[in-house]
Simulated scan of single mutants.
Amino acid sequence: MDGTSYGYTTDVRYRDLDPRGHVNHVVYVSYMEQAKGAFLREVVGVALDEVNTVVRSLDVEYERSIESGQQVTVDLRVENVGETSFTIAYRLSADGRLVATAETVSVLLDERGKPRAIPDRWRRRIEEYDRGDRGEPM
Rank of each mutant, 00 (worst) to 15 (best):
A89V: 04
D120N: 08
Y28A: 00
V26T: 12
T84M: 05
D16P: 08
V74D: 00
A100G: 00
S93T: 13
A94N: 08
M138Y: 13
R125I: 09
I66F: 10
E111A: 11
T101L: 05
Q70N: 11
R77D: 12
R77K: 15
F86A: 02
A89E: 07
D95M: 01
V26D: 02
G21Q: 01
T104S: 13
D75F: 11
P119T: 11
L108T: 09
D11M: 05
G69R: 04
M32A: 09
S106L: 02
V51T: 02
I66T: 11
V26R: 09
T53N: 02
L58E: 08
T53I: 12
N80R: 14
R131W: 07
E136G: 07
M32T: 03
R116I: 11
N80H: 13
A89F: 03
R20C: 05
P19C: 06
Q34S: 11
D49R: 00
Y14E: 06
T73V: 07
Y90Q: 07
V51I: 11
V46Y: 03
G21C: 00
Y8D: 04
E128A: 15
G113T: 01
V107L: 03
R131T: 14
V99S: 02
L40E: 06
R77W: 11
D18P: 02
L17R: 08
V81N: 03
E67Y: 12
K36M: 10
D75M: 09
Y8V: 04
D133I: 15
G82E: 03
G113V: 02
A35P: 07
T84A: 12
R134N: 14
H25N: 15
V107W: 02
S30T: 07
S65C: 06
R123W: 15
F39C: 01
R97A: 07
T104W: 04
